[in-house]
Structures are given as structure tokens and as C-alpha cells.
């Protein structure tokens, strides 16, 4: 089985976030970066599937030169080779641009299974996997908690997480794309032997085909202003209670 895992490099969790001058992204020129956490679980799932069913795990990522750090990390953990769509234009690109760039580079590989993280820790749109499935012409399922491939390799059953503790099992044909939920497995460590072996693995760098898609872009990014205002609600107790509930629901949106 030939599995692709799409990974993204994001700013580390403890990095103090400040909007960049452009006000469309955070200041990240001197940031430290790490692998997007849901993608790490997708990679782990791919490695486990390979251990059970054999085949190859190919890491695919789109972004500037700096993302080679997380690509090497994925190779050190056990992926076999990598495809890096390299372009500075993709450094803070939205889901549409990234999915388009990845799809172009992955099209000819004919993967049996494509895994992505459910969402990214930075933008959090949760769209890259879904748009990528559409561009590759693959059926997809999201928020996956468990992956069960049929013995004959013809199809798979996946467990999706729904709201309120509910789950759903879905049968799907292969090839397919799945977006993986964090925490579905126990992540492995990169071993020293893995780090050394990664140095000899192939990273195929491909340029971005054309310009980055502008189908979706961030117009403005800002830190919400903190305000503290007190409002008195007049009227009888039942009326005031009704009004309070309405305000909490419609204005404060906490209910």
C-alpha cells in the first residue's frame, strides 16, 4: 500500500503570538517551528498501517525552505521519502492554495491512501484535507479515530468522531483521503538511528506550479480588544432574567 501523509510546519505552541506588520499573519521571522500536531498523528497512523500491511509512506508538504525541518523529522520517524513543494509564496497560505500545490505534486503518484491531520494548529480551517481530496478526485472522511483496512486491500472502514461522544463507522473504497484526529495513537520518538537514516532518504523538491491560489486569503488578523463594561438590566426579575438570557445568547454568545 502506498500512503501519502501531508504535514505542515507551524509555529511552536509556546511562541508568543504577535501580528506581523502586514496584519495578515503572525510575526514568525524569528519563531521556532514544529510539526503540526494532528499531522504527527496522521504520520504515526500511516507508519502503523505500513507495519501491518507493508508498502511505502511518502511525506508531502508545501511551504518555504524552512519546512525541510519537519520533513526530516517525519523521515527520521520512519517515512520512506518526501515531496516538498517549495515556495515562499506558500509560507502562510490558506487551505485552498496549499491543497492546490500539494495536489499538483501528488497527482502522478497514484497513492492508495492519503492522510492529513484534521486541522492545523495555526489557521485551524480544517479544509486542506477536504479540498485536496476534491482536487485529487478521491472520496474522503473526516475526524477519523480508527482506520481498519480490509484484508484484501479493496476498501476500508473508518471510525469518525461525532458530537456528544457519538461515533460513526463508515465503509469506503480505496483510494481515499482521511483527515486524522489528534490523540488516536501513541506517537513514536525519532530515534538517533532514524535521524541518521533520514539523511540518506530522498526529498524530492518541486517548484510551485504557477502562482499560489488566491481562492481564499486572510484579510486581517488582530488581537481581540479586551473590554470590561457593566450593564444594568432594568425591569422585574422575570423580565430581567429573560433579557439577560437573550444578551448572553445573542451578544455575549456564551450560551
Amino acid at each position: 500500500m502506498k500512503t501519502a501523509v501531508c504535514i505542515k510546519q507551524v509555529v511552536t505552541r509556546d511562541w508568543p503570538l504577535r501580528p506581523a506588520e502586514s496584519a495578515t499573519w503572525v510575526r514568525d521571522d524569528d519563531a521556532s517551528f514544529e510539526m503540526n500536531e494532528p499531522d504527527a498523528y496522521a504520520l504515526e497512523e500511516a507508519l502503523r498501517l505500513k507495519e501491518r500491511h507493508g508498502g511505502e509512506v511518502v511525506v508531502c508538504s508545501a511551504g518555504p525552505a524552512r519546512i525541510s525541518q519537519v520533513i526530516r523529522e517525519a523521515l527520521a520517524r520512519g517515512a520512506d521519502r518526501a515531496i516538498h513543494v517549495e515556495s515562499d509564496a506558500l509560507s502562510a497560505a490558506g487551505a485552498d492554495a496549499v491543497a492546490a500545490a500539494l495536489a499538483a505534486a501528488m497527482q502522478d503518484e497514484s497513492f492508495d491512501l492519503v492522510l492529513t491531520g484534521l486541522q492545523s494548529d495555526d489557521q485551524g480551517f480544517g479544509q486542506t484535507g477536504v479540498v485536496l481530496a476534491e482536487r485529487l478526485g478521491l472520496p474522503h472522511a473526516t475526524i477519523i479515530m480508527e482506520v481498519d483496512i480490509a484484508a484484501d486491500g479493496a476498501g476500508l472502514r473508518v471510525k469518525r468522531e461525532l458530537e456528544s461522544g457519538w461515533f460513526q463507522w463508515v465503509a469506503m473504497p480505496l483510494p481515499a483521503l482521511l483527515t486524522i484526529q489528534s490523540g488516536i495513537n501513541q506517537l513514536r520518538y525519532a530515534t538517533l538511528r532514524g535521524i541518521m537514516a533520514a539523511k540518506r532518504k530522498e526529498i524530492r523538491t518541486v517548484p510551485l506550479d504557477g502562482v499560489a491560489s488566491q481562492g481564499q486569503r486572510i484579510l486581517e488578523l488582530y488581537v481581540p480588544e479586551k473590554t470590561s463594561a457593566t450593564r444594568f438590566i432594568d425591569g422585574s426579575a422575570p423580565e430581567a432574567a429573560r433579557e439577560l438570557v437573550r444578551l448572553l445568547r445573542e451578544e455575549a454568545r456564551v450560551l
Binding site: 525541518q69 526530516r72 527520521a76 520518538y189 525519532a190 538517533l192 535521524i195 539523511k199
Partner: peptide, 15 residues
């Protein structure tokens, strides 16, 4: 430099 960066990141992750 790359190896050193990878070592720092992997050992940091383990720790």
C-alpha cells in the same frame, strides 16, 4: 547544522 537541529528537536520532543 541540519543534524544538530534535528537532534535538538528530537531529544527535546522526547524530553
Amino acid at each position: 547544522v541540519e543534524l544538530h537541529q534535528d537532534l535538538r528537536s528530537a531529544v527535546g520532543e522526547l524530553c
